[in-house]
Every structure is written in structure tokens, then in C-alpha cells.
């Protein structure tokens, strides 16, 4: 488990994983360049080349989490800033699913959230005001709200190099006050999950959203978000 980062400091996950290679270091393997070594090197490069799963979500804590455990959460409809139609809906559904599946939060039904939005006349793709956030929290009986924005989404299917890319920002909002507690930014492409040949490659937005949601939830739990006991 990693220690929680100090407030106000952005954590750059993939910077931490970068290997430092001191000057002058030369592995013994390269000291005698032989044909089999070159072949082995090429094979290793091919196999490991796609394993660049270093793109971790970046968490920016803005305020401390509530000290007590959190039971009820609601996910607010996402805002789509990308050119990919329905990216907000797809990522929303998948994050909801991962919340139910991977945590012990009691997740408010999507239907109840959308009904509250309709009643409060909050238009789609519109961010609720502070007061509206408090009203939503009251009406839905939740302690924490999750808001999200899809910044970029693209998908290239078929061909020799199918790939997808997704950039999203999620915010944890303290329901009683409407204050943003954590801001999480995550950017990933499907090729970053590639292992050997095409294996592991994520070619769809849905697949990418699922893996990225899992990574974000994992990070949140690591950093101290406490769901109530099941």
C-alpha cells in the first residue's frame, strides 16, 4: 500500500514507475554482442513491448475525506466533452457496475438519480450547482457523490492495429457540503494493456472503461476511501 499523498499535491503514478538507469551502467548481456543475444533481445522487446501499463490514475486530494465509513453513494450523470457519442453513458454504466461489483458501497439506482435530475430541472450535460448537489444528496440519502467528465474518447476498430483511447476525470464530492474532495484524472489507450501479440489489447471503449474504472476504484480504496462493511 502506498502512503497517502499530502493534500494539494498531484501524484504522478507513472513517474514513480520509471526506472532510473545510471550513466555508465551496462548489463553484461550487451558486453558481447552475439547473434543469439540480438535475437533474444528482439524477442523480449516484442513480448514486453506492449506491457506498458504504467498509466496510473492521477489523484489530486483537495479536501480530507469524511472520517467515518461511507455507505451510500450516487453517481451523477457524466458530462461528455469528447467527440465519441454516448461515451458518457457507456462509462457511466460501467463505473456503476464496477462500484457494485468491486466495492461494498450501496450505490443509488441510476433511475433514482435521473429522476432527481429531472425533478430539479438539471439539463443533461449540465453541472449541478452547490445547492443542487446538496439537494441531490438529501433527496437520494447519500454521503458521497461521484461526478465525471469524459474528456476524450476514440476507438479504431478492425484493421491491423485496433485501438481505443479514453481520458476521464472523476470527482468525489462530499454530499452534505457539495465540496469536491478528490479529483482523479485517468488517461489510457488500449495498447497499454497489450501483452504478447494481440493478447491483452483493448480495442473497445467499453473494455477500456472497465479496466480504467477498476484502476480508479483500486486507487481510491488504497488512498483511504472507506466503504462501510457489507
Amino acid at each position: 500500500m502506498q502512503p497517502p499523498s499530502p493534500p494539494g499535491k498531484i501524484r504522478y503514478g507513472y513517474l514513480r514507475k520509471t526506472n532510473f538507469n545510471p550513466a555508465g551502467f551496462r548489463p553484461a548481456l550487451f558486453s558481447t554482442p552475439r547473434p543469439w543475444c540480438v535475437l533474444l533481445l528482439l524477442l523480449l522487446t516484442t513480448m514486453i513491448g506492449g506491457c506498458g501499463t504504467s498509466g496510473r490514475p492521477q489523484l489530486q486530494p483537495l479536501a480530507p475525506l469524511p472520517p467515518h465509513e461511507i455507505c451510500r453513494v450516487a453517481v451523477l450523470p457524466f458530462i461528455n466533452e469528447s467527440n465519441y457519442a454516448q461515451a458518457d453513458l457507456i462509462v457511466y454504466k460501467i463505473l456503476m457496475s464496477e462500484l457494485v461489483n468491486g466495492t461494498t458501497f450501496r450505490v443509488t439506482l441510476e433511475g433514482d438519480v435521473r429522476k432527481a435530475f429531472r425533478q430539479m430541472r438539471i439539463a443533461p450535460q449540465q453541472k449541478p450547482t452547490f445547492e443542487q448537489l446538496r439537494m441531490l444528496a438529501d433527496r437520494l440519502g447519500v454521503q458521497l457523490l461521484i461526478a465525471g467528465t469524459i474528456n476524450e474518447a476514440s476507438e479504431v476498430s478492425g484493421g491491423r492495429a485496433p485501438n481505443s483511447q479514453l481520458v476521464m476525470t472523476l470527482q468525489l464530492i462530499d454530499a452534505p457540503s457539495g465540496r469536491i474532495l478528490w479529483n482523479t484524472y485517468h488517461k489510457k489507450s488500449g495498447q497499454q494493456y497489450q501483452k504478447v501479440m494481440h493478447f491483452g489489447l483493448v480495442s473497445s471503449i467499453s473494455g477500456l472503461a472497465r479496466r480504467m474504472s477498476q484502476e480508479i476504484l483500486e486507487l481510491w480504496l488504497q488512498e483511504g476511501l472507506k466503504p462501510c462493511a457489507d
Binding site: V100, S157, P162, S204, R210
Partner: peptide
């Protein structure tokens, strides 16, 4: 109780089924 007791997201794409 209106509680979502289980949920799963599954994607079977062109690379997953190959």
C-alpha cells in the same frame, strides 16, 4: 429493498474472442 445486489460488465471484442 431496491438494492443492486450484483452487476457485471463484460466485453467480448475482436481481440477477446480471437
Amino acid at each position: 429493498d431496491g438494492q443492486t445486489v450484483w452487476s457485471n460488465s463484460i466485453d467480448l471484442g475482436e481481440t477477446e474472442t480471437r
